[in-house]
Amino acid sequence: MQRGTGARRTQRTAGDLPRWVWLPAALGAALVVVPVVALLTRVDWSDLPALLTSESSRAALWLSLRTAAASTVLCVLLGVPMAFVLARTRFPGQALLRAFVLLPLVLPPVVGGIALLATFGRRGLLGSSLEVLGVQVAFSTTAVVLAQTFVALPFLVISLEGSLRTAGHRYETVAATLGARPSTVLRRVSLPLVLPGLVSGAVLAFARALGEFGATITFAGSLQGVTRTLPLEIYLQRETDPDAAVALSLLLVVVAVLVIVLVRGREGRS
């Protein structure tokens, strides 16, 4: 009887938190929640449909969805092999490579845009050669996709690499021992094993690409229907039509919430 009471007391003590912890936690929650609530109070609900369905808003939204989807595909095609290389191999300079992969997470996006412009601009490292071939990357829809991929790729790599390290490689070792080729092990064992992490990383990459602003406006500019994505449209509308800017901001908030719910839901089921 005493042993059971002691176990319950230990469990209750381990689960309890000091009361003072609730105060900074509440302040942190308020710092996130209150601005969103303030945004909702600024929305003119009667004019919301007209603001969201204007020609410029529809063009910006459609361009954002197309480019974010394209950049997400690029993130998957490039990020999945990169995550496997970082998680399953060892080679000189690996730590430096990982640092460069994670660099867009800490760099201001405008710096990323300048770096892309120095690479693919007309006088850039690769852009001058592409210009001779008649290919112009900067200030085009392709530039939007590249800018979004640059800032979104680390999210997929981090998510998938973490899933790979958590899953371990014992199943892959067993499959290889049974005679499966490396490509078969990757396709039939490794990828299905970390599929939830891959999906979560892809969704996060899509959300980050959808909200990209700094690298896009620096590298791609703001041409309606060509490079003016939804965040750029919000920035421009803020000066000329604040109500439209608030409505479009609310749209991005809704999309972000749906993305977070989707990712957390999949993680909970996993």
Score class of each variant (00 low, 15 high):
R3K: 13
G4R: 14
A7H: 10
R8Y: 03
R9Y: 04
T10I: 12
R12C: 09
T13L: 15
A14L: 06
G15R: 11
V21A: 15
W22S: 10
A25T: 04
A26T: 07
L27H: 00
A29N: 08
L31Q: 11
P35K: 14
V36Y: 15
A38R: 07
A38L: 11
L40T: 05
V43P: 00
D47I: 01
L51V: 01
L51I: 10
S54L: 08
R58F: 12
L61R: 02
T67C: 07
A68S: 15
A68G: 11
A68L: 00
A68H: 00
A69T: 10
A70N: 09
S71V: 04
V73K: 01
V73S: 00
C75M: 05
V76N: 12
L78I: 10
G79K: 09
M82D: 06
M82W: 00
R88A: 14
P92N: 01
G93S: 09
Q94I: 13
L96A: 14
A99I: 08
L102G: 11
P108F: 02
V110W: 06
V111G: 03
I114A: 10
A115R: 07
L116I: 11
A118R: 15
F120T: 02
F120H: 12
F120E: 07
R123F: 10
G124Y: 00
L126D: 10
G127N: 04
V132Q: 00
L133M: 08
Q136M: 07
V137C: 11
A138P: 06
F139L: 02
V144W: 08
V157N: 06
G162P: 03
S163Q: 09
L164S: 04
L164E: 03
T166C: 06
Y171D: 12
A175P: 06
L178N: 05
L178Q: 09
G179T: 13
G179R: 05
A180Q: 08
R181C: 07
R181V: 01
R187Y: 05
P192T: 06
V194I: 11
P196A: 09
V199C: 12
V199S: 13
V199W: 04
A202S: 13
A202R: 14
L204V: 13
L210P: 06
G211R: 09
F213Q: 09
A215W: 01
F219K: 05
S222E: 05
L223K: 07
V226T: 03
P231N: 06
P231D: 03
L232W: 05
I234K: 12
Q237A: 15
Q237L: 11
A244N: 13
V246N: 15
V246W: 15
L248F: 13
L248H: 01
V254A: 14
V254G: 00
V255L: 09
L258P: 02
L258T: 04
I260D: 02
V261N: 02
L262P: 08
E267V: 14
R269F: 14
S270N: 02
